[in-house]
Nucleic acid binder design. Sequence first.
DNA 1: GCAGTGGCTTACCGATTGGTAGGGAGTTTG
DNA 2: CAAACTCCCTACCAATCGGTAAGCCACTGC
Lengths: 202, 202
Amino acid sequence: MAQTTRDQLLATARRLFAERGFYGVSIANIADEHGLTKQALLHHFPNKAKLYGEVLREISDDLDKLKLAAMETSADPKGQLGTLLRAMVPTIEDETIRTRLLMRELLDNVPRAETAGTWYLKTFLNDLVGMVKAVPGWAEATEAEALAVIYQLLGAVNYFGVSGPTLQGIFGKTKVRMLNEAFPAQLDALLDAAFAIRHSKA
Amino acid sequence: MAQTTRDQLLATARRLFAERGFYGVSIANIADEHGLTKQALLHHFPNKAKLYGEVLREISDDLDKLKLAAMETSADPKGQLGTLLRAMVPTIEDETIRTRLLMRELLDNVPRAETAGTWYLKTFLNDLVGMVKAVPGWAEATEAEALAVIYQLLGAVNYFGVSGPTLQGIFGKTKVRMLNEAFPAQLDALLDAAFAIRHSKA
DNA sequence: GCAGTGGCTTACCGATTGGTAGGGAGTTTG
DNA sequence: CAAACTCCCTACCAATCGGTAAGCCACTGC
């Protein structure tokens, strides 16, 4: 069974929204790439906002899958967090798209979420906080402290993931390739260092 | 001498572009906030893209100032980097705006920079790489390694800076206030840990 | 054979987009 | 006093936006 038109439109929407954002892409742009009219797209999705919501739901599902996969590979929470964060470093194009959409959601979701009533990142962030608190030495950390360190590490991973095209523009292809090679080892070192920090109220 | 109309328009553009992005704001939106027509705005700025470019130039100037200020407060490069990164954690609203614009530039600048031929972050990033290489133990790090760690730390700082409204939506005001209080100490610990990593080819 | 149904089309809508043309009021300058 | 300049206006433009209405065509189930 081949991919349905709906699936193809969804994939294109995902890519274009990641590149240019919600306002930067028209439904006609998306339909055009498949030789269709925007009315064809509106046959599959009730309106533009719902289409965007569908894309976000996919992203949120992706993150949940990464989280579950990380929890299976290792028993200790520190290893789980490391696996998860390393997995979030984009290597193939589709992962870059996911990272960019995630970042855009952080920037733009306030008006969207208020009308839609959905915070796609909520459970993901809560789960991460739980994992941090399970790390030895972090049991007595406050929720705010756990969230702070999670955010710093997510930032370390995702900021880089978003900047590929920019970095290439500034530094050129060769340096970016070297950067991509150097990044994971550097990240490992940072993760180790971050969780080595002891948290006890003593 | 009061602020000129041009300056006021520029400040409003800065705020609105930070909130909703380039495509999410019309020049009429900006002019409206001052009771002017968009043609009045077009009298001060040749077109929308040039206006946006002006906003970006301001941001880039801001970053340079922060960098110079950080270089004055301390003699050792590690302290300078710490001061700079801590200064980039947004505390007042205008700093949040700057952080959000910076993030948007990372996401959107590819099509813009290609036509404009300007990479606003280039000198800033290059300077930071220089500072990292001056840190004891990092002299022999490759440029890629230095860039990797810089990017991770910038990410740790800026990802958080961008997410304020989102976090408030998810966790509520009280928790976000606690998070804001916990963040700097956590960041200090991360910075210490990151630069404690020794880099020698031995 | 015929009523759905899914997938798409053309035709159209009002609203908004970035931008141009030209003019008018007030101030500055020669 | 007149020319020039600054600042902002109304009027207008073609293009595009998201979305509705209605119909066409191929296929399916009864």
